[in-house]
Design a protein around this nucleic acid. Structure first.
Lengths: 228, 228
DNA sequence: GTTTTGCAAACTGTTGACAATATGATCGGG
DNA sequence: CCCGATCATATTGTCAACAGTTTGCAAAAC
């Protein structure tokens, strides 16, 4: 059974594969992991050699990542990791707040008991991590919580839009800061979201989700204010 | 001075040009104009010859348009104009409602009297077109109204996100339907939006904007229900 | 010593060619 | 007469080479 699954996975992977797709994923990881810093130049031939492919697939990946807002392309000059200024980050956060709030609103109209249980479990786990001041444990749970809400709506385009915004914000955070403060407040806001979802109150859910992201924005801006 | 501007414009145009960009815009126009129907296959070499370029720039454009959701790419099979099902359209409308509502909310916090005047002018013009039952005049005004709100926020990423969703919806409408009914109601909703904006009431503005797009969704779905 | 001009190396944009895969028709078998 | 296998054709995926532009250095002029 496990073998069947891996075989199917491999088949599926090959289907959507084509060298270009593999290269795309690889370069995306490099950027989001911070291996290439914002503003840094990406050399086509370098990357191609490094990945053991020709320049073609690399250029394909560049086009996609440029469209997703992760790369800047300057004609005849090359591609650079997108610089996300403080001003840009505010703009992205505002859109993200609206999209996430919308996800909460839509989910409130159709949430199942299983989904509610999953979210409440994540809440408890985050409380635990918060009590231990265990940031390493908190972050993945936090991401899982937001992802569960966004994908829980069953709206693939909503999820795609949201995750795209999040990855763009990664480039802002990637400038070497820790942003740990105030994640106790963060989970309080999470509880407000789940409360509105469980109450099946779309408007309250939107407000809670919107406010949560806006509060996150404020926390990040406050922490980074000293750095620039 | 005018000469300086045109010179700068030309320079700017050349800067963002590169054959790939020209090809991209051209193919995008072909798709959105309905020259290629949803589901139709786009042949690389055909398009390349037709545009007088090699396959490279065409492939670049394909990658971008695929990322924007206008094309479907199947490995070793080729690219096709994205089919937007009824179900997809609902999903896109829901996201669009949230993004547009967010635009209204953000604009309500910072609207200028000049912006308000512009919107009220558009309202009056749309009333005129509505009274004459002049659909040809109404549509561009309607688009201008929404665009003015979205760009009026000063948030480029919000505008980009919104316009991307609208272009994807174009593929749903492109299936040869007229969707004229109920644009009297539409302008009533527009007035509600402007009222909330003028009152600088973010929450009311969101609700008005969100409700307007949802009402638009309902109108389209009703009109297309007979066709499938 | 500073600035400008010219040159060389490197890189990007584009093209054409080769390899791998899918499509469609023809032929053979049931 | 219908169905399946085989082969030719067409199309996509990948690569390597060419042309045009930019960049950095060095030499010359001021």
């Amino acid at each position: 059974m496990a073998q069947l699954n891996t075989a199917l996975d491999a088949l599926d992977l090959l289907k959507t594969s084509s060298l270009s797709r593999v290269v795309l994923v690889e370069i995306e990881k490099m950027i989001l992991s911070g291996l290439y810093a914002p503003g840094e130049k990406l050399n086509e031939k370098n990357l191609a050699d490094r990945l053991g492919v020709s320049r073609g697939p690399v250029r394909d990946a560049f086009q996609v990542l440029h469209t997703r807002g992760l790369l800047e392309m300057i004609p005849n000059r090359g591609v650079f990791v997108q610089q996300v200024t403080r001003h840009d980050a505010v703009a992205i956060y505002d859109v993200r707040a609206g999209v996430f709030g919308t996800a909460c609103r839509l989910l409130a109209e159709r949430i199942t008991s299983a989904q509610s249980a999953e979210l409440n479990l994540l809440l408890a786990q985050m409380d635990g991590a918060g009590a231990d001041r265990d940031l390493e444990a908190y972050f993945p749970l936090n991401i899982a919580f937001h992802t569960a809400i966004v994908t829980g709506t069953g709206n693939a385009i909503l999820a795609e839009t949201y995750l795209g915004l999040v990855s763009r914000l990664q480039l802002f955070r990637a400038r070497g800061l820790l942003y740990g403060g105030g994640f106790a407040n963060s989970n309080i806001e999470h509880r407000a979201i789940v409360a509105a979802l469980d109450a099946r109150d779309p408007r309250a859910a939107f407000e809670a989700g919107f406010a949560h992201v806006q509060a996150g924005k404020a926390r990040i801006l406050k922490e980074t204010s000293a750095h620039e």
